[in-house]
């Protein structure tokens, strides 16, 4: 990986981090309607995975999906406007944080139902295989989703039908408010083995590791359609949702997260490779300016008209 490529990954991670920090603040100010699930600490996963993807590849996501969405290249202003419930949002203010989608960018949607993205992405991978253009599909899910029955159904079918789907598990150790070790009697590597699906585990907080592993798996499945699993060990810094005080977590555990911060790790690697403070600061300034401009535009945008409530329930007008 060239220093320039590495710096680009850093810039993308920082974009997600600063965007979520901005959302965190907007939420605290009462400007974000509904629920907000932040992926702070997990940015290296979608940025690393997306470095292997084209716009025609499809991804689907879960409730903690801001990083997946931004990494797929969606418009930053439309993203902020959607989460603020504005008419100019990517989904015209009808979806919000848990349902951001941009079909033009191959982003098939965040999802409010745990593990629901798996069958949708399995179907998308089937479509890719039928269309024969070498495109692939990626589904992001957490370790908490592994307790859902659909995981079994989809691993089974993806293997049986040799579908080009990358199952990306962001394993942050938490199933909402419970440690996953109390929720799951097995592990994803064992499930991979059981189904005969290629399995790789990486430090999900080291973006280069994620990018390298994803790049290799994706290149393979473009040539010969087949599923693969990429389990990324990562860290959930914030609560299950904003407002969750995380009383159920040990303070030592939370304090230790900082040392594994993916952005800090990437910055250290960049510095070791010769980048200086000024170069990093320049990237940060550029990212922050973009986030601020997007936030301002989204805040100024109009709310949806109440009269639009029936729009788009169906494609054609009712008879």
């Amino acid at each position: 990986m060239t220093p320039k490529e590495r710096a680009e990954l850093y810039r993308r991670m920082l974009t997600i981090r600063r965007a979520e920090e901005r959302l965190q603040k907007l939420f605290a100010d009462g400007l974000v309607p509904g629920f907000l699930h932040l992926s702070i600490g997990q940015e290296a996963v979608p940025v690393g995975v997306s470095s292997a993807l084209t716009e025609a590849d499809t991804v689907s996501s879960n409730h903690r999906g801001h990083g997946h969405t931004l990494a797929k290249g969606v418009d930053l202003t439309g993203f902020f406007a959607e989460i603020l419930g504005k008419a100019t949002g990517l989904c015209r203010g009808r979806g919000g944080s848990m349902h951001v989608a941009d079909l033009s960018k191959g982003m098939l949607g965040a999802n409010g139902i745990v593990a629901a993205g798996l069958p949708i992405t399995t179907g998308s991978a089937l479509a890719h295989r039928m269309q024969g253009k070498g495109n692939i599909a990626v589904v992001y899910f957490g370790d908490g989703a592994l307790a859902e029955g659909l995981v079994h159904e989809c691993l089974n079918i993806a293997k049986l039908w040799s579908l080009p789907i990358l199952f990306v598990c962001e394993n942050n150790g938490w199933s909402e408010f419970s440690p996953t070790e109390r929720q799951l009697a097995t592990s994803l590597d064992r499930l991979g083995k059981a189904y005969g699906i290629t399995y790789r585990e990486v430090d999900g907080n080291v973006v280069e590791e994620v990018a390298r592993a994803a790049g290799k798996l994706v290149a393979g499945m473009r040539k010969a359609p087949a599923p693969a699993i990429l389990e990324c060990r990562t860290t959930r810094v914030r609560g299950h949702f904003e407002g969750d005080r995380q009383d159920y977590r040990d303070s030592d555990e939370i304090a230790a997260l900082d040392a594994r911060d993916p952005i800090r790790l990437c910055a250290e690697a960049l510095m070791a490779a010769g980048l200086d403070d000024a170069a990093l600061a320049a990237i940060a300034a550029e990212v922050e300016a973009k986030i601020e401009a997007a936030t301002e535009a989204a805040l100024a945008a109009p709310l949806p008209e109440a009269g639009d409530i029936l729009a788009d329930v169906y494609t054609r007008a009712e008879v």
């Binding site: 629901a116 069958p119 399995t122 998308s124 479509a127 659909l150 989809c154 079918i157």
Partner: peptide, 19 residues
């Protein structure tokens, strides 16, 4: 396979991908 939820979900995902 006998997996009604996956069958239906696969239909949703394929439909969102041009089929």
């Amino acid at each position: 396979p006998i997996a009604e939820a996956a069958i239906t979900g696969i239909a949703v995902g394929a439909a969102l991908t041009g089929m």
